[in-house]
Nucleic acid binder design. Structure first.
Lengths: 194, 194
DNA sequence: GTCTATAAGATGATAGAC
DNA sequence: GTCTATCATCTTATAGAC
C-alpha cells in the first residue's frame, strides 16, 4: 500500500530531479541526491525510474508538456503579441529567480554530447515547439502591425530564444538575475515593445 | 629525464582537458579520459595537476589569457570597429566548427553551481575582460560613426556576449553550426554591420 | 616525470524480502 | 512501493619505487 496518493513519489522524484538538473546539470546530480532529499532509499528511486536515462527522458518530456501548456494559456490570456512576448519573457525571469534555476533544456543543451540519445530527441522537440510558438506570435504581431521585425520572423524567433538562453546562462554565472532582465528588455525593445 | 621538452606533458594535458570541457563539460570528463588519450597513467596526470580544481583553474586561466591575446591582435589587425567585430564573431564560429566545441567559459557558466570556488572566480574574470574589450570597440565605433547602437554600449556589449553564447549553446544542440552564424550575422546587422 | 599499487568513496544498478 | 543487501565500475586521489 502506498504511503500517499498513487504515483505521488514518482512526481516528487521528478520535481527534485528537475531542480537538480536546472541548477547542477544532468551530469551534476545522482540518484543519491534524490533519495536523500526524499528520505527514501536509492533502490526506491530505481523502482520508479529504472535507469538515469529513463529519468532524463521523462524529465524533459514533462518539462516540455508543462511549458507548452503555459504557452497555451498565455495565448488565451493575451490577444496582443506584445503582451504575449512580455509574458513569455516573464516566465524565464521567474525561473531564474526561483532558486537560481536555468532553463532545463538550455542546461541540457550544454551537455548534449554526454546525454543519452533518447534524451536528446526530447530536447530537440522542446526547442522546435518553442520556436514554433514564437514564430506564430511574431507573425501575428507583424500582421497586426504591433511588432516591428528587423529580420524574418524565423530569425527573430531564434534570436529571442538564443538571446534569452544565453542571458540566463551568464546572469546565473554572475548571480545577478538583473542582467537577464536587462537583456530581455533590450530584446523586446528590438521588436518595438516598450 | 623528460621524454620531450620540459612541461610538454602539462600542456598536452591542458589541451585535452580543454577540449573535453568544451564538449562534455567540467562534470562530464575524468582524469581517466585524459590519461587514456595521452597514453600515460592516471597518477601522472595527478603529478601535473594534483586535484581536478587545480586543473579547472589553470584551464580557465590559460583560456582567458589566450583569448585576450587574440583580441589584442584583432585590434592591431583591424582599425575599424566593424572589422573588429566581424573578426570577433569569426573566432566563435571557428570554435564551434572545431569538433563541435562550445566556449569553455560558456560551458562552465552552465555548471557554475557545481564548480570549485577558485574556478568560479577565474570564470568571472573571463567574462569581465571580454565585456571590457567589447565595450571599448563599441564606444570607438560609435564615436567614429561606423556603428549604430540601439542601446548603451554596455547593453549592446552584453547582448552580443549573451546572444553569441546562447547561439553556440543551441546551434550545438542541433548539430547545426549554421544556426550560430545566422544569429551572429543578425546581431552584427543590429549594430549596422552588413 | 612516470610508473605500480592501492584506497576510500561515489555512482548506477539489481535481487529478493517485506 | 519500499526496504536491505550487494554489485561492478568509475572517480579522485595518494604512497612509494624506478
Amino acid at each position: 500500500m502506498a504511503a500517499s496518493a498513487p504515483a505521488a513519489t514518482a512526481g516528487k522524484i521528478l520535481d527534485i530531479a528537475e531542480r537538480l538538473v536546472q541548477t547542477r546539470g544532468y551530469n551534476g546530480f545522482s540518484y543519491a541526491d534524490i533519495s536523500s532529499e526524499l528520505r527514501i532509499r536509492n533502490a526506491s528511486v530505481h523502482y520508479h525510474f529504472p535507469s538515469k536515462s529513463d529519468l532524463g527522458k521523462r524529465l524533459v518530456g514533462r518539462y516540455r508538456e508543462n511549458f507548452l501548456a503555459v504557452l497555451a494559456t498565455l495565448e488565451q490570456d493575451h490577444a496582443d503579441a506584445r503582451r504575449r512576448l512580455r509574458a513569455y519573457v516573464a516566465i524565464w525571469s521567474r525561473v531564474l529567480r526561483d532558486r537560481d534555476r536555468m532553463c532545463l533544456c538550455g542546461m541540457m543543451a550544454a551537455e548534449i554530447a554526454s546525454l543519452p540519445r533518447s534524451v536528446r530527441s526530447e530536447l530537440k522537440r522542446f526547442f522546435n515547439e518553442n520556436e514554433a510558438w514564437l514564430l506564430r506570435v511574431l507573425r501575428a504581431g507583424q500582421k497586426a502591425g504591433t511588432l516591428r521585425l528587423a529580420g524574418t520572423p524565423l530569425i527573430e524567433a531564434r534570436l529571442l530564444t538564443m538571446g534569452l538562453e544565453g542571458a540566463m546562462l551568464l546572469a546565473r554565472s554572475y548571480g545577478e538575475p538583473r542582467r537577464f532582465e536587462e537583456i530581455a528588455a533590450r530584446l523586446l525593445s528590438g521588436l518595438g515593445i516598450h
